[in-house]
Design a binder for these strands. Sequence first.
DNA 1: TATGCTTTTGACATTCATTTTCATTTGACT
DNA 2: AGTCAAATGAAAATGAATGTCAAAAGCATA
Lengths: 143, 143
Amino acid sequence: MILEKKKAFQNFAAAKGLRSTRQRDIILDIFLSTHQHVSVEELYLKIKSSNPGIGHATVYRTLKLFAEAGLAREILLHDGQTRYEHVVAGEHHDHLVCTGCNSIVEFEDETIEKLQNEIAARHGFLIKNHKMEIYGLCAVCRN
Amino acid sequence: MILEKKKAFQNFAAAKGLRSTRQRDIILDIFLSTHQHVSVEELYLKIKSSNPGIGHATVYRTLKLFAEAGLAREILLHDGQTRYEHVVAGEHHDHLVCTGCNSIVEFEDETIEKLQNEIAARHGFLIKNHKMEIYGLCAVCRN
DNA sequence: TATGCTTTTGACATTCATTTTCATTTGACT
DNA sequence: AGTCAAATGAAAATGAATGTCAAAAGCATA
Ligand SMILES: [Mn+2]
Ligand SMILES: [Mn+2]
Ligand SMILES: [Zn+2]
Ligand SMILES: [Zn+2]
């Protein structure tokens, strides 16, 4: 799965005429080894610990590339930090976010997705993407 | 309706021991006279034109109060600006956002709201709020 | 392997929304 | 009027993200 993603990025890079660089390899490795919903800063720090040379700007730039390549999805929750999560081909999910402990639970709901399409159609919208987040307290934090 | 909101803020302020100030009155008046989904900056400029003395910080602080008082809802779209919209008691809606012309269409969907509650319950979450935005091109911009 | 051209990088500066600071002003109560 | 905490606003600070640009690195070609 990790190999597939590396392959996918290689293909994307080749198609776009991007060069293969040590930095991009490292950042991809570390991103793929990371849990879901990493903030750019978290990732940057993790990268720095093994590769002190890599700069802030490069991490930002490279994550945008991953998103463009379809490997990563940008997530904007309400903490002022951009996060990225792994994209699993053909899958989609939304998020339950605990405002107590910041944990995130993922969920999928076919019916909601279908209703979203209907709503968009009814208003003549052509959907590009959507976001849906439910904020509240998780089972642990509500007590 | 405007009077009710002013009353509601008075009550909120009284309950919280907040003082009644000229600035808060002005900001509330202008907020209530404003169309939906105003950015803080837009509101600030509108306020300044009639009341040059009022500061940036006060507008930010006061809008947060309105949100806390239940008069306003903070809306974070993806343009880096915080917006506020009017809250109509007992009503809730979500947004279709056109990435072409930045227009916003509001919609309500009972079924989706119900499904959200079920999902949260299934995961033991206590919902505080949620956001759902569908991004795409409106009927005009898709052509 | 060396050359030449172009992309990429990273240190640093910059931007921009929002928050903080803090001296001054103001509201509310006596 | 006097007291005092709350509120204000100008200016500075913050912090995420982006822009700049000289130096470094990739890659095609000789
Ligand atoms: Mn996720
Ligand atoms: Mn709205
Ligand atoms: Zn929690
Ligand atoms: Zn449009």
